[in-house]
């Protein structure tokens, strides 16, 4: 039976993590992630750096609307830190007793503020292209974190003969190879407090870890409960098999 489960695990991991092809047939390179595998967890330091990258390099165009400031506790921040972090942003509230809407500093129970009030404004600010919300980005693309990393690092000169339209950039991994997002990461584009060197690769890795968490904040709870459930079921099924053998002993 263990063998069957192992075989199954191999089949499944092949199916889940086998090389995904981006539209256009470019193979997306597979990378190692702290959160993959049966016991993987999110790397807290990488997530914190990822949050910083989101704030400094992405938040100007992309919302992350499903995340609340309170969720940052998952990244290892204290309630005070979260409160201070939230308070740097202003959100609209109201109506007050006079019937007026007003602005106030954000609190932990607010959602991350959005860069644009609506999709039309977002398009207007981006040459007509809509920067998608990033809350579910890792789950919403074939290839998941590998795809995200590939797109963020896939910029470069177009091969000879390829025309890139005005306002678009060439990207090896984006479907169609022309993306309306200018290269969002640059060498030393951010300065990390923990001294990590901010190469494009490092930043791509960190923001991807952060966005993987944003896509599925409960992954760690899922895996740790899974371990207990699987162990219980293994023992329980073993007992059931023993009981069944005894009961059937007189028939066979």
């Amino acid at each position: 039976m263990l063998k069957a489960i192992k075989t199954l695990a191999v089949i499944v991991s092949l199916g889940v993590a086998g090389p995904a092809l981006a539209a256009g047939g470019v193979e997306i390179p597979k990378r190692d992630w702290s959160f993959q595998g049966l016991f993987g967890t999110y790397d807290r330091a990488a997530m914190q750096r990822g949050l910083q990258i989101y704030q400094e390099s992405c938040a100007g165009c992309h919302s992350i609307r499903l995340i609340y400031y309170r969720n940052l506790a998952d990244l290892g921040y204290t309630a005070e830190q979260i409160k201070a972090f939230a308070a740097e942003n202003e959100v609209e509230d109201g109506p007050n007793d006079e019937g007026e809407m007003y602005m106030r500093p954000a609190v932990a129970s607010d959602r991350f503020i959005k860069p644009f009030p609506n999709d039309n404004a977002a398009r207007a600010g981006n040459n007509g292209a809509l920067p998608p919300d990033l809350s579910l980005m890792v789950e919403a693309r074939v290839g998941g974190p590998n795809y995200l990393y590939a797109v963020l690092t896939g910029y470069g000169e177009p091969p000879a003969g390829t025309e890139v339209m005005d306002g678009m950039s060439y990207n090896k991994y984006f479907p169609g190879h022309q993306i309306a997002m200018p290269p969002p990461l640059s060498e030393d584009g951010v300065e990390f407090a923990d001294g990590t060197k901010a190469t494009v690769e490092q930043q791509a890795k960190d923001i991807t870890t952060f966005l993987a968490w944003a896509s599925e904040p409960n992954m760690e709870a899922r895996k740790s409960m899974g371990l207990k459930v699987m162990l219980f079921l293994l023992v329980f099924t073993g007992l059931l098999i023993a009981v069944k053998r005894r009961i059937w002993a007189d028939v066979h």
Binding site: I5, A140, R222, M230, F236, I241
Partner: peptide, 29 residues
């Protein structure tokens, strides 16, 4: 007794997907 064995093995199979590959059957879109 025999159905219980089947249920045990089946729940292992089911739980594997729920806890370790919940999006295996799904579509990213």
């Amino acid at each position: 007794a025999k159905d219980s064995v089947g249920v045990g093995v089946f729940l292992l199979f089911f739980a594997f997907f729920v806890f370790y590959a919940p999006n295996f059957f799904g579509e990213p879109d």
